[in-house]
Design a protein around this nucleic acid. Structure first.
Length: 466
RNA sequence: GUCCCCUUCGUCUAGCCCGGCCCAGGACACCGCCCUUUCACGGCGGCGACACCGGUUCAAAUCCGGUAGGGGACGCCA
């Protein structure tokens, strides 16, 4: 059996979106699982819309996700001579012909056909033309088989059959001499010896045409696997109006690549009741044939849950590195402040994204500029002053730095003064962080350090005295 | 309009190929309880689906037919 060769072939007309990322992931997974080759090919035949920026954005998304390719990136624009040559071959063999119909005429005929409820296919005006019609502009059309059917066994959808009658003579070369998509893919997939084509299912309708092209060209037909689309919450095709669709946007929102990957692989694919998959487990368990046949809705809530899971299970050192950009975007530097890894440990259980973590980490590096008045109002001033004073005093004499030891200290303070934990913890939390939503008192103090803690306590005490 | 595809809890899905173990299992979300110095985490429990109609069968989510709904394609875009 020959080696498996798959490819991901995005067109550089935008960033890498989650749908494309999932297709890329499935390709990558299959290649890794089968010990095959994963090729990256940029489909830039649309000179009008293809941009270098898009290519870079796609590459950036791919590498952030860690979907490394074995060959490429190849650019279709580099193969123009080859396409030209193959078009000529088809022309010479009578398998393609020149068509002089004008685009506008065709457009009209198409609209008319649609209006009248007919299939808007090319009427074959130039199909039987003899010889060249001078130097009038022309496109080259593939002479498609008229009768019979074209069918293929899709790895995901099963057997799909099209009556050839539904397929018209598609254009393979434009008036300006450039080749069209359906033709390029076939040539490229054939020359790159792709054995399995995994792509979005918006391509199923193109598949029979491509198969006819493979046959006309004398190439072996690869296997096909069409993965269902990803929908937005309203079940319409996922687009910007549903929120972020760019892979890089997810990175910037503070998602971990393994969380996105895990989410994406479970969209349409499953392995029993398993939800969490490491990269290795995905590779080991993935099977293209067990990808579902129906479209699925992108659900940010679940992605968030997975992200929280991976945040909880990542090392503080790694998170620290990933968190830095989110912090500096907020104008915060960790210089001179608490050890970032210690801060992260207090936040790991509570943050769903790195953005959220950065937000919650802020007070460690910037003493509160104001306090949550409503929360403070639940205690009377005398009590507040007494608490801040007692804690400050206790801390001054303490040599401990472990969260558990500090918590024990607070228990002592409660016992000594006949207070309940709620009467002490909450005021101190407000004094240290400004608000009520923060890690445990012991954790905060340990990360902040005794000196800084006392400073903030004194500040808060002054504040309530005023 | 024509062709192609799809249809299990709100969402992702298991089960479907090889009917009975399924008055349908898991996960996210939601609700409640517990834990608790806040917020979270965690634990426990709850809510909640086989699109519909026929057929085959002792028995159907599973097989067959039809209906409805949804999506995709129909480009000198990819």
């Amino acid at each position: 059996m020959s080696q498996l060769r798959v490819r991901f072939a995005p067109s550089p007309t935008g960033y890498l979106h989650v749908g494309g990322a999932r297709t890329a992931l499935f390709n990558w997974l299959l290649a890794r699982k089968e010990g095959g080759i994963f090729i990256l090919r940029i489909e830039d035949t649309d000179l009008e819309r293809s941009t270098k920026e898009s290519v870079d954005a796609i590459l950036e998304g791919m590498s952030w996700l860690g979907l490394e390719w074995d060959e490429g990136p190849f650019y279709q624009t580099e193969s123009f001579p080859l396409y030209k040559q193959q078009v000529q071959r088809l022309l010479d063999e009578g398998k393609a012909y020149k068509c002089y119909c004008r685009a506008e005429e065709l457009e009209e005929k198409r609209n008319l056909a649609m209006q009248e409820g007919r299939k808007p296919k090319y009427d074959g005006t130039c199909r039987e033309l003899q010889g060249d019609a001078g130097d009038r502009p022309y496109v080259v059309r593939f002479r498609a088989p008229q009768g019979g059917v074209t069918s293929f066994d899709d790895l995901i959808k099963g057997t799909i059959t099209f009556p050839n009658e539904e397929l018209d003579d598609l254009i393979i070369q434009r008036t300006d001499g450039s080749p069209t998509y359906n033709f390029c893919v076939v040539i490229d997939d054939a020359t790159m010896a792709i054995t399995t084509v995994i792509r979005g299912d918006d391509h199923v309708n193109n598949t029979p045409r491509q198969i006819q092209l493979y046959e006309a060209l004398g190439y072996p037909v690869p296997r096909f696997a069409h993965v269902p689309m990803i929908l937005g919450s309203d079940k319409a095709r996922l687009s910007k109006r549903h929120g972020a669709t760019s892979v890089i946007a997810y990175r910037d929102m503070g998602f971990l690549p393994e969380a996105l990957l895990n989410y994406l692989v479970r969209l349409g694919w499953s392995n029993g009741d398993d939800e969490i998959f490491s990269r290795e487990e995905m590779v080991e368990k993935f099977a293209i044939t067990s990808v579902g046949r129906s479209a699925s809705v992108f659900n940010t809530e679940k992605l968030l849950w997975l992200n929280a899971h991976y945040i909880k299970n990542s090392s503080p050192a790694r998170l620290a590195e990933l968190l830095l950009p989110h912090l500096s975007r907020r104008g915060v530097t960790t210089d001179g402040g608490p050890d970032l890894e210690k801060v992260i440990v207090t936040l790991q259980e509570r943050a769903q994204t790195l953005e959220e973590m950065a937000e919650r980490a802020l007070f460690f590096y910037q003493a509160p500029a104001s306090y949550d008045e409503a929360a403070l109002a639940k205690f009377d001033k005398g009590h507040l002053q007494a608490v801040f004073g007692a804690v400050d005093e206790k801390l001054a004499a303490a040599g401990v730095v472990e969260p558990a030891a500090i918590d024990a200290l607070f228990k002592e303070i409660c016992a000594d003064n006949g207070w309940k934990m709620g009467q002490v913890g909450q005021p101190v939390r407000i004094a240290l962080s400004g608000g009520t939503q923060a890690p445990g008192i012991g954790e905060i103090v340990a990360a902040l350090g005794i000196a800084e803690t006392r400073l903030r306590l004194q500040k808060a005490r002054e504040y309530v005295t005023l």
